[in-house]
């Protein structure tokens, strides 16, 4: 039996050390962090939009963690100051991301505040960024007859002519697309953060 006990206890100790270092200690370090004064909680529309962002896996190409200037030109690209733990106070789940197949989006709401741009770009990214490899999301939009859309009081997209639907038809966003854009417009972490007050 001695070997089995060694095997199981040794394996558990190894895992416990790793868990203490990577799960428990960060938990103790950041649990008391308060949100910065400039950070606003998400509105319910933004939270719904965040769910659309998660459901469609945007995080697999877009990070949300601008880095310090000695780690890359994130600030120079307009992606914002380096993020701090407090910036993520309302983020459940976290969306830090691990790829930059596309640009960082932590401050996309500041860089690109236009609702129309976002809607059109989601419908067909290549209408705005010619070599983009971002997927188009036609399933977040509905193509309708222009007359029907008008009678229903819909607001169709203003697309560049070459990318619009057939003559007499218009593209209208679904509620998911509108919520997603509200979330993207709300991504703004440009408020100042102060370094922690030194202990007396």
């Amino acid at each position: 039996m001695e070997n089995e006990v060694k095997l199981v206890s040794g394996a558990m100790v190894a895992l416990a050390v790793a868990t203490a270092a990577l799960v428990v200690m960060p938990y103790m370090e950041v649990r008391d962090i308060q949100p910065p004064p400039g950070l606003k909680p998400y509105t319910s529309a933004q939270l719904r939009g965040r769910e659309v962002y998660i459901a469609n896996g945007c995080v697999y190409c877009h990070s949300q963690q601008p880095r310090d200037r000695n780690f890359g030109p994130d600030l120079a690209r307009g992606w914002g100051r380096a993020s701090v733990p407090g910036d993520y106070f309302y983020d459940k789940p976290h969306l830090l991301g691990s790829m930059r197949t596309g640009p960082d989006l932590f401050n996309i709401g500041v860089r690109q505040p236009s609702r129309d741009w976002h809607l059109g770009h989601l419908y067909q990214p290549r209408a705005y960024v010619p070599d983009s490899i971002m997927p188009s999301y036609p399933y977040l939009f509905i193509v309708k007859d222009a007359k029907d859309a008008e009678s229903e009081g819909e607001q169709p997209l203003a697309l560049p002519p070459a990318y619009g639907p057939n003559v007499g038809q218009v593209v209208v966003p679904t509620p998911q697309a509108l919520d997603l854009v509200k979330y993207l417009q709300g991504l703004n972490h440009t408020y100042p953060v102060l370094p922690p007050v030194p202990k007396p």
């Binding site: 868990t19 990577l22 799960v23 950041v30 993520y88 983020d91 459940k92 789940p93 976290h94």
Partner: peptide
């Protein structure tokens, strides 16, 4: 798990 701590847990798991 929430926020940044969730991220460390995420990669503690992901790499393990």
């Amino acid at each position: 798990h929430t926020g940044v701590q969730q991220a460390t847990t995420n990669w503690w798991y992901g790499h393990n």
